[in-house]
Design a protein around this nucleic acid. Structure first.
Length: 223
DNA sequence: AATTCGCAAGTCGGGATCTC
DNA sequence: GAGATCCCGACTTGCGAATT
């Protein structure tokens, strides 16, 4: 999943970021809601997680949720706060949040809830990604199963969500190495090469194709 | 110790340009 | 127009560093 984590240097952000990365998500972290709004208009995220300040200003959190929902209508929007009274939770839901969590957050529950909400909001995308298993880092196609590394997994996820359309190189780089702006472009070639040979060695009926001057695409092969 | 990752170097193929 | 050459992007391999 492509996740935008917005947190104003909250101590929990480190923990959440680490857990999300270990769960094989592609996470972009920003510390300002205004930057988050800009990022959400520039790129299609699956989930936006808004970590409120400590102590939480409920009114401000609600305003932030409303602004984010205004620019990202199809995204799963989650708010995490110190304290969520029933009336706060209700207000957040009315303003467009899909769920509100109170600290401390159980990551396992948080992760499962995210997946469930994505399934409801974007069933087609969820179906495309169903070939991937984040827990075991495997890709399944027909009767074949392919064990992937974390980077290979993220590249595969990025390609699968595009269907058979070509994914630009810069999009792939941002997806696989989120938050890093000094990625050597040849690293993507290297990753693609290893992913391709892994798929081919298992005889899978999909091919990783380089699209000159654009990027890569994943296509079904006849044989 | 095994796995993963990334850098460096080399190969390959296709397109562009030049020369005849 | 055809062949030769050059260049660039894609791909592969080897190896060492970092991580688990």
């Amino acid at each position: 999943m492509r996740i935008l984590l917005i947190s104003a240097h909250h101590p929990d952000a480190r923990y959440l970021m680490k857990a999300l990365l270990e769960a094989s998500h592609s996470v972009e972290e920003l510390d300002d809601v205004r930057d988050g709004v800009f990022a959400a208009t520039e790129e299609a995220f699956d989930v936006i997680v808004l970590l409120a300040d400590t102590p939480t200003d409920s009114k401000r959190l609600q305003d932030d949720v409303a602004v984010l929902r205004g620019v990202a209508r199809d995204v799963v929007l989650l708010a995490v706060s110190d304290r969520l009274r029933p009336e706060d939770r209700t207000a957040l839901l009315k303003l467009g949040a899909d769920a509100g969590f109170e600290r401390p957050v159980s990551f396992l529950e948080f992760n499962e809830r995210m997946k469930r909400l994505l399934r409801m909001r974007s069933p087609r995308l969820f179906s495309r990604l169903s070939a991937l298993d984040a827990e075991t880092l495997t890709y399944a196609h027909d009767a074949c199963r392919c064990k992937l590394t974390r980077h290979e997994y993220l590249m595969m996820e990025c390609l699968l969500r595009a269907g058979e359309a070509a994914v630009p190189r810069d999009v792939l780089v941002r997806y696989v190495w989120p938050g890093k702006d000094d990625v050597n472009p040849s690293n993507l070639n290297l990753l693609a090469s290893r992913l391709r040979s892994k798929i081919q060695s298992l005889g899978m009926r999909v091919r990783l194709v380089a699209v000159p001057s654009v990027g890569y695409s994943l296509v079904e092969s006849a044989e």
